[in-house]
Nucleic acid binder design. Structure first.
Lengths: 178, 178
DNA sequence: CGAATCATGTAAAGAGTTACATGATTGG
DNA sequence: CCAATCATGTAACTCTTTACATGATTCG
């Protein structure tokens, strides 16, 4: 087992609200979910076929559009999902990021390198932070998150808090170094 | 290109200090580096052969121990590494973590589920935080980080700051929810 | 009608994991 | 000397990404 399968469960989650086509599922991974999980259509279509084969989902009948395939979660699929959700999360994710890597190998004398490394990272995170804040404003401006989007709201807040923490640490540490 | 090659550059970094055997390199990934990058020996040995073939490193001569192979970075390897280090980090890492995933799909009515999700994560991060702090104490108690370990010191601080931020957010948010 | 694109799919390759294998060496 | 382990290596498999392919549909 190289990695525990996650993708099919994400798809099941998405289908809980309503039936979707492969295209629509793919789009989700480029928008909301893309923040923390990526999957391309070349991964999704085979996965859908496999899930259909395992009877986790089926193609909805009476579909007006000929080529689009609307996938719908089955009772089996709902059970599978329900069991998966109950499994506790027992390990922290491994953060394979280049900044950590370069930071690790930096030596104290590389002050120029360190400075650039920090400034680049600050720029990156600032941009990301702006993006996240803009999205929060767009999606949840004033109004409280409605039922379905509550998790999304929590996640956005968490991402923002994390990036702000990062940014502060970067700025403080950079200031101390110089 | 499925993913940009990182592993060989990490190995080059490790070899900059002194020649190492495959076993020793593997050990590094289970200790210091393991915090943010993993690699098993079955990945490392073929990589070493490949790098040797590309002349990024060579086996040191006059080795007393017969079976151990001490790999040494070559001039070519140093150039390759130097170029790689100069490349700016242009993208943030994708955080594929299950907690985010489950958080995203949670609905407001699942108060029991949310609570458990948060408490599990708080326990996980607390444990990790203790571990990190213990290591910092062990490695850098009182004494300032020496030249070679400066990056390691920075990285540990960053990891601790990140986990503390996480933990605070989790606790605050959990309190607000109930 | 012809070109662009839509929706779906297939192919090829690299990265990473787990499990298996092997010859040398050490220790009781 | 024999068993454990050390150090290295191989195999099989899954995940993920990039690139290529194809038939249907829309639009000027």
């Amino acid at each position: 087992m190289p990695q525990k399968r996650i993708l099919p469960y994400i798809i099941l989650e998405l289908l809980q609200e309503r039936p979707l086509t492969g295209k629509e599922i793919t789009a989700q991974f480029q928008n909301e979910i893309g923040e923390f999980w990526k999957a391309s259509h070349s991964q999704i279509y085979p996965e859908l076929m496999r899930m259909q084969h395992d009877n986790w989902l089926k193609i909805t009948e009476n579909d007006s559009d000929g080529r689009k395939k609307h996938y719908q979660i089955t009772v089996t699929g709902e059970q599978v999902l329900s069991n998966w959700i109950k499994e506790p999360v027992t390990e922290l994710p491994l953060n394979r990021d280049l900044f950590s890597l370069k930071l690790f190998f930096v030596t104290k004398s590389d002050s120029k390198v360190i400075e650039k490394l920090f400034n680049d990272q600050i720029a990156l995170i600032s941009a990301q932070l702006e993006h996240l804040k803009a999205r929060k404003k767009l999606l949840f401006a004033d109004k409280a998150p409605i039922e379905q989007h509550f998790g999304h709201y929590l996640l956005l807040n968490r991402a923002i808090a994390r990036q702000e923490g990062q940014l502060n640490w970067l700025k403080e540490t950079l200031a101390q170094l110089s």
